Simulated scan of single mutants.
Amino acid sequence: MSQTVVITGASAGIGRATARLYARRGARVVLVARGRTGLDNCAEEVESLGGRPLVQVADVADPEQVEAVAEAAERAFGPVGVWINCAFSTVFAPFEEVTPEEYRRATEVTYLGFVNGTRTALKRMLPRDRGTIVQVGSALGERSVPLQSVYCGAKHAINGFTSSLRTELLHRGSNVHVTIAQMPAVNTPQFSWVTTRLPRHPQPVPPIYQPEVAARGVLHAADHPRRKQYYIGATTVATLWANRLAPALLDRYLARTGFDSQQTDLRPPTGESNLFAPVDGPRGHDHGAHGIFDEASHDRSLQATLSRHPAALAAAFALGGAATAAALGRRGRTSAA
């Protein structure tokens, strides 16, 4: 039986790549974003891959619009089984250069958009005692970087809000699940349409992964939601461990390197920003899933693959442990001789 899946931020980036994966399963995919052009093109892809699309133009910052999406989804496809919160907007700039209006707007989309989507999904899932909500998070939700205070603050808030909700669901013994897929740097179009006040074109901090790597992680999290969160990409794991083991040292490292590593040698984008309005409207164009960093991006992640196969991960650790033990044994025998 095919699933009914709602994906916010489906017109581009990780949301677009995730919609394609569900389409290959023959799922009924509800595509949500503000930009009609990207959504219409995504719908064509979903249909061509074997899925059934439903386009919903909506701003996730508005709870009434999100509620209307859910009503349309269930009217067309029946009960929503999976709700994926992925939409976001942000500003690349030092904190003092971000206006109050920009800060409010980005927070309303990136944080409250997740809250609105989660509330709407729960309204339908809790009475049925089934369903899964996936929050598309970020390593920056646990380890902040310079020039992204808006985004980092929102992603931190998502982590805290989701953890609180998870304990409430556990308390009531609910079979509704909520999980977070924490992302690495991903090659999405956001870096070409983001509001920026940097002297050069913004970029994700290398190493960069393609949206398909992230999408596979989202799909796995939705299929196996009992874990609190999933870490996608070795750099995500490394960043989180570095922050736990040496946060002060990491602060100094990011203060020294974080400005240059988030900028290319190119001039900043000259097109319109998508903060207050979509940039792929009737006169715009379809941005697709990928950004401009294809040549520098990885289309595979060994860590992400192993995390989807715990037995293989355990075997890898066992082999590594055995090899280490053997090496130490040989070293010990050599020393004794």
Rank of each mutant, 00 (worst) to 15 (best):
G320T: 09
K228T: 15
S149R: 10
G9D: 02
P310F: 07
P282S: 07
V29F: 09
V60L: 07
L240N: 06
A325E: 02
N41F: 06
L275V: 00
L21Q: 13
T8H: 05
Q190G: 12
P146C: 01
A157R: 06
A154I: 11
V69K: 07
R124T: 04
G217P: 11
L266S: 05
D223L: 12
T257H: 12
V115M: 06
P189R: 03
A106R: 10
L165G: 10
T167A: 13
Y209T: 00
L126H: 09
N187I: 06
V30H: 05
V279T: 13
E44R: 14
A277V: 08
A121E: 08
L302M: 11
H285V: 11
K228D: 14
A327E: 14
R256H: 12
A323T: 09
R25K: 15
A234H: 08
T118W: 04
V176M: 12
E71D: 13
R227T: 09
H287W: 14
L240D: 07
Q135S: 05
R36K: 13
T239I: 12
K228Q: 10
A33K: 02
G173C: 02
E71M: 08
L140R: 02
S163L: 06
T257L: 08
D265R: 14
A139M: 15
V150F: 03
L275R: 04
D294P: 02
T90P: 01
P189G: 00
R36W: 06
R124Q: 05
T188L: 02
R119E: 03
A316F: 13
T162H: 03
V46D: 01
V91M: 12
A214T: 10
G51H: 04
Y103T: 04
F92G: 00
R267H: 07
S89C: 01
P204Q: 00
I158D: 02
P63V: 02
A255T: 10
Y209Q: 08
S301T: 07
M125C: 08
L49M: 10
D265T: 09
V145T: 11
V150W: 02
T4Q: 11
D286P: 03
G320M: 06
G173S: 01
N41L: 14
E71Q: 08
